Computed example of a mutant assay.
Amino acid sequence: MYATERQDRISTAIARVGRVSVMELSREFGVASETIRRDLDLLEEQGRLRRVHGGAVSAQSTTIAETSLADRSDQAREQKSAIARAALRQVPDTFRGSLLIDAGSTTAQFAELLAARQPAAPDARIDVSTNSLAIAATLNASAHLALRILGGKIRGITGAAVGPSTIAQLTDLRPDIAFIGANGVSDGFGLSTPDEAEAAVKAAMVHAARRVVVLADSSKLEVETLVRFARLDEVDTLITDAPPPALLASALAAHGVEVVLA
């Protein structure tokens, strides 16, 4: 295989899955890792990818890149819908207790399903807290949910309440299950998001909950954004739409994280 053909295939793989590793590419193409690194260096010079430790990611992928909630809602819609359905199964229709729902596009789909579902018994009310304006509006229409909205400064790009007052409210809560979104989930860095204020609220949610369920589509796996808000050993369950890459799968297993494939 010519070098240009190999490099085109590497670019195609980046576009498809968002990240490639030197070791995996070396095995796939039957060439030395040094050859793959030279390919990645050239492709980075051409602006076709960005080098990271052990491999490369999309050129558009940066630690501070963040799209609006509306834009994210249109991305990987089918995968997020499947994840939301799997998340709903974590809350049996006989459940009586408290939930905490983080702001995000996948958690918003979960909230829609939760609001639409009828409980097994008329008195099976669920207490739900959220820092998301959009999710609060969805949940408010449901008669069987007791809604608590966490106040604070609203980030326009995500519609999430953040800041010291939001965190202070979370320190006084002990929900049974927290459903958390993440921009990145990696074996070395843990769970991360681009914004420091939002990361602080997510961290407070993780610390408050008795059980932490992370909702992250496969494009977020082995991605590291700017601010870590939780280690893998602080998570109980990861719901995603594809098997995690080998290194991440091993790390999740080592920390006892249950992986649910939607």
Rank of each mutant, 00 (worst) to 15 (best):
G256L: 12
V260M: 06
A200R: 10
G97A: 02
I10F: 01
A168K: 01
V259G: 06
A216D: 06
D127N: 09
V52M: 09
H144F: 03
L226E: 13
L248S: 12
D123Q: 10
R117M: 03
S98G: 08
H255Y: 13
T35N: 10
L226Y: 06
T35E: 08
A120K: 10
G97I: 05
G97Q: 04
A82R: 14
V57H: 11
T171E: 13
A121F: 09
R231Q: 11
L40D: 01
I177V: 15
R117T: 11
S186D: 14
R16D: 06
D74Q: 09
N131S: 14
I167E: 14
G18T: 05
A111L: 01
A32T: 14
E112W: 00
F229E: 05
A134C: 04
G163L: 11
R38T: 12
G104K: 03
L170Y: 10
L40I: 03
D74F: 05
D195I: 05
A103F: 05
R51W: 11
R117G: 05
S68V: 06
V212Q: 09
R210W: 11
F179T: 09
K220M: 01
L42I: 04
T237N: 06
A216T: 07
G104Q: 04
Q7M: 14
R72M: 13
A32M: 12
L100A: 12
Q7I: 00
S129E: 09
D41L: 03
A108P: 06
L252R: 07
